[in-house]
C-alpha cells in the first residue's frame, strides 16, 4: 500500500520535473514545479515528518513559487522564450547529466552498506512537532539564530536591489 503511494507520488514528481525542464512557457514550468513540490510534500508525510511537509507547502508553494510567478508576470518574457536551450551546449549537458545520474544510481544499488540499515521502528513521538521544536531550540539554537539573521540580510538586500534609485 505504502509502496503504491510512493510509486504514484514519485512518478508524478519525476514527470512534472521533466515538465519544468522541457516546457517552453516559464509560467507552465512554474506550475509544473508547484506540482512537483506538492508530490515532495506528500513524500514527507510518507516519511512521518508532517511538520516538514507543511513547511514545504507553505514556503515553497506558498511563498517561493508565488514570487516566481509574480516576477514572470512582471517582466517582459516574450523574447527570452523564443529559444529554450543554450546554443551548442544542449547535448553536452544532456550527456553529462545522464552519465552523472547513472553513476549515482550504480553507486546506490551496488553499495552493500545501504541494505544493512535496519528498518526503523516508528514510535508515536518520532518526528513529531514537539520533539522537533525541542531539538531546534536547545541543541540547534545557534544555527537557528544565524538563519534568522540570514533571512533579515536577504530581506534588506532584496529591497535595496529592487529600489528604483539603485537600478
Amino acid at each position: 500500500m505504502e509502496q503504491a503511494f510512493f510509486l504514484l507520488f514519485a512518478s508524478i514528481a519525476v514527470a512534472s520535473a521533466c515538465g519544468v525542464v522541457l516546457l517552453k512557457n516559464p509560467v507552465h514550468s512554474a506550475v509544473a514545479l508547484i506540482a512537483c513540490f506538492i508530490q515532495i510534500a506528500a513524500l514527507y508525510i510518507l516519511l512521518h515528518s508532517p511538520f516538514l511537509a507543511a513547511v514545504q507547502l507553505f514556503v515553497y508553494v506558498g511563498a517561493i513559487m508565488v514570487l516566481f510567478i509574480f516576477v514572470i508576470m512582471m517582466l517582459e518574457i516574450r523574447q527570452a522564450t523564443l529559444e529554450r536551450f543554450l546554443p551548442g551546449s544542449k547535448y553536452i549537458s544532456l550527456a553529462f547529466s545522464v552519465v552523472l545520474g547513472s553513476a549515482m544510481l550504480w553507486l546506490l544499488f551496488s553499495s552493500p552498506l545501504l541494505s544493512q540499515i535496519p528498518p526503523p521502528t516508528p514510535s508515536a513521538t518520532q518526528g513529531s512537532v514537539s520533539e522537533l521544536g525541542q531539538a531546534l531550540f536547545t541543541q540547534y539554537l545557534l544555527p537557528f539564530e544565524v538563519v534568522s539573521i540570514v533571512l533579515l540580510v536577504a530581506l534588506v538586500g532584496a529591497i535595496f536591489m529592487t529600489h528604483k534609485g539603485n537600478g
Binding site: F6, V21, S29, C36, S97, M104, L114
Partner: peptide, 26 residues
Amino acid sequence: SWYIALSASLFVIGLYGVLSRRNVLI
C-alpha cells in the same frame, strides 16, 4: 534506496535544466 533513487533522478533532471536552459528564471 527508493527514496535515494528518486532524489538522485530529480537532482539530475534539475542539473540538466541548470546546464541547458537559456531563461534565467527557469
